[in-house]
């Protein structure tokens, strides 16, 4: 399944307890979970149990948020290959930071599976899985502009906030532009694997389309900038103003998450 910016946007516009939550709280929750996950030791079987519980909690939240399960699974699956690849290789590698290895199986050719490698690989994979799920949950329940606004209210400098909010505005414009350029190219039978034309020519065409996209985004930037000037834009201008208040349910969700992390850390 192919996931695009539009799919993420569609999910983030749904209605649920999690969608309604204050963006700041959601971001903090995600950060707390990720930082806790990263801080766990990587050669400890208990880590896997702790991560398993956290993961189930996140999956439950995905269900509560009413996200399309196929979409959520596809997004996790798309992001995972790199992490999966790194984890799968670990049992066969002598990690530089471990000095003693217990060999479990010998596979010949000098390759063997070590208990430490297996454990390290499994913990890495569990860590990736929890982090991916946390971000999928955050980005599918929070609209992008809310994320920027929340980051601003959490202390992101106003200049960066301006940059991010404008970037998000034009992300969709260029995404659409790219799609239209590709359609127009398909109409004239363009296919990057076409064997009838020299590969170099194909690359040049891709280069040209990237160039024109680059130039068009630059010129769009110029036009936007001038139009902003026309409406009295200055470096001190405030662009986004959001005044959502943190409600009781937000505090509750945050505390539930913190308590869960505490329980996971000290009771297992």
């Amino acid at each position: 399944m192919h996931i695009t910016l539009y799919d993420i946007e569609r999910e983030s516009y749904k209605e649920s307890l999690l969608h309604r939550m204050d963006g700041r709280i959601k971001m903090l929750m995600t950060l707390v979970i990720i930082i806790y996950v990263v801080s766990l030791p990587r050669l400890d079987i208990v880590t896997i149990e702790r991560l398993g519980i956290l993961w189930l909690y996140l999956v439950a939240l995905i269900i509560v948020a009413g996200l399309n399960p196929v979409y959520a699974a596809a997004r996790i699956a798309i992001t995972l290959p790199f992490g999966l690849g790194v984890s799968i290789l670990q049992p066969f590698i002598r990690q530089p930071f471990i000095t003693e290895f217990n060999v479990l199986y010998k596979l010949g050719l000098g390759i063997s599976v070590t208990a430490e490698g297996l454990l390290f690989g499994s913990v890495l994979f569990a860590k990736f899985m929890v982090c991916v799920t946390a971000v999928v949950l955050l980005s599918s329940t929070t609209q992008m502009r809310d994320m920027v606004a929340s980051a601003r209210r959490l202390g992101l400098p106003s200049e960066l906030t301006l940059l991010f909010s404008m970037m998000i505005r034009y992300l969709f414009v260029f995404w659409g532009m790219l799609r239209r350029i590709r359609t127009a190219q398909k109409t004239r039978c363009f296919n990057i694997w076409n064997k009838n034309v020299p590969r170099r020519w194909i690359l040049e065409q891709i280069g040209y389309s990237i160039s024109s996209l680059f130039l068009r985004s630059y010129e769009q930037g110029e036009r936007t900038y001038y139009s902003m000037l026309c409406r009295a834009y200055s470096a001190d201008s405030q662009i986004c103003v959001v005044t959502q208040k943190v409600g009781a349910s937000d505090y509750m969700m945050f505390s539930v998450t913190l308590i869960l992390i505490g329980l996971v850390q000290f009771c297992i």
């Binding site: 970037m167 034009y170 680059f214 985004s217 769009q220 900038y225």
Partner: peptide
Amino acid sequence: TPLLAVLAAGIFA
């Protein structure tokens, strides 16, 4: 700076 933001969106695409 707005120009940079728009260009960043372009590079993203």
